[in-house]
Design a protein around this nucleic acid. Structure first.
Lengths: 240, 240
DNA sequence: GACATTTAAATGTCAGACAATTAGAAATGT
DNA sequence: ACATTTCTAATTGTCTGACATTTAAATGTC
């Protein structure tokens, strides 16, 4: 306790006030000088605390007269961005096997199948079909293929029309992209994947959850197969 | 672009270096003074940037000679803590209906059923049964009941033996707790919930995924029913 | 060789200054 | 009366220099 830095303590104090609702969205915090007085610290210490909160999208700051720090409404987009960053780093900095990550990813994705079949709109289907078309272009780079893959799965998740679910799943799916980028896709594997994608979207359109699940399972098995040969020598501690 | 603060730019620059692997785990960053020179800014600006990174658990700082800022390995625990905070705030600061949140939560939880049945250990079952026993104590407070509920579901998720899945799901489940805490549990509803919990654990022990799913569905329906009457007047913007 | 002391490097904190930004008030012009 | 410009005050952003604190390593002492 004695070792804790003041700026961390102050950040925690303010964060608690926000989490517990004592500070509501768009409320203005006291100015930096006032906070410095209240907490009996220097202004720079307060500023470090505020930067910590800003890094978590808990506050935003505005300059000028009547500016200051305001409690920020955490948007789905911000929350998802943070989730993606965290998940990506977690995967890249720990010895996570390709199998474990893949298993988790597809298990999670299956979570949206029932709702997707129930609530999918024409626009969702169009989005997904558009990505499948893009994936069939022969001049698409590997990165482009992976990016399109992510967008397709993202569209599947969104078709459940549940923003909370989208936030959770899209984060998980996007975090897998760097791992997928390690795989080079031959013409053959591309067409195989696209075939499963088509199966999947057809089943969503037909509102047949078990068929969607089956397509996803095919994809999972095939992805694992593609990843198997791949050297899983991860790069997180390259030398020494 | 012209409006971006220097400390944010510097933080982004270092964050990119970490994400792209140019800085590996436990690498030491240059000292604050050296960074200040390199980026041609004052030391306080560098410090604000470092605090932003520290808030995301991307670095840790050590004091004293040969101290400094080190790239930190993001642990599952840290990642999950961040996920819980983010998810909780997302739910508390946006107009998310109880139904939407509940739907997402149970859809996600179903994602671990197959793996849980396949890989559950005796210890997992023991953990879950222990929580059920605790929930049957009549002198347990509502908060205690909810906390035990979270631990039970957490144990279910962990029994899949997939840390990536645990991280994702545990975050989602824990984030729902504040919403659940709004419900007061009568003796009758407690015993009803405990009954479903027992069904669920029995099915996991018997390795019968469909039965687990059915128990979870019962729980979801019953939870929704309990939440329905509840005033869903959310507190995020109490008075204007 | 074991223990105590000193030293140097680094972060943590503070105070004071100034620049940049911005909304609103005041002044000015028509 | 209204529009435009200028001024003003509040606030964040940045820099500088100072000092306190912490810590590992170097040095000294027995």
């Amino acid at each position: 306790m004695s070792n804790t830095e003041l700026s961390a303590t102050i950040a925690k104090s303010i964060r608690d006030a926000i989490v517990e609702g004592r500070l509501a969205v768009d409320d203005r915090l006291p100015s930096e000088s006032e906070l410095a007085e209240q907490f009996e610290v220097g202004r720079s210490t307060v500023r470090e605390a505020l930067k910590r909160l800003a890094a978590q999208s808990l506050i935003r700051t505005e300059r000028g007269a009547f500016g200051g720090a305001f409690v920020q409404r955490l948007s789905y987009a911000d929350a998802q961005a943070q989730h993606v960053t965290t998940s990506t780093l977690l995967l890249s900095m720990n010895e996570v096997s390709f199998v474990t990550a893949c298993q988790a990813r597809f298990a999670l994705e299956r979570a949206c199948v029932d709702l997707a079949c129930a609530h999918r709109q024409a626009a969702d289907l169009a989005d997904m079909r558009a990505e499948i078309t893009r994936q069939s272009q022969p001049d698409l780079s590997d990165e482009g293929f992976c990016a399109s893959d992510v967008r397709l799965h993202r569209a599947l998740v969104d078709s459940a029309q549940n923003p909370v679910l989208s936030y959770q799943l899209a984060g998980a799916v996007e975090a897998m992209q760097p791992l997928m980028n390690m795989i080079t896709f031959s013409d053959r594997s591309r067409s195989e994947i696209t075939r499963y994608h088509t199966m999947m979207v057809d089943a969503v359109e037909a509102r047949q959850p078990p068929k969607v699940v089956r397509a996803l399972e095919c994809l999972e098995i095939y992805t694992l197969e593609l990843g198997r040969g791949k050297i899983l020598a991860r790069k997180q501690t390259p030398a020494r």
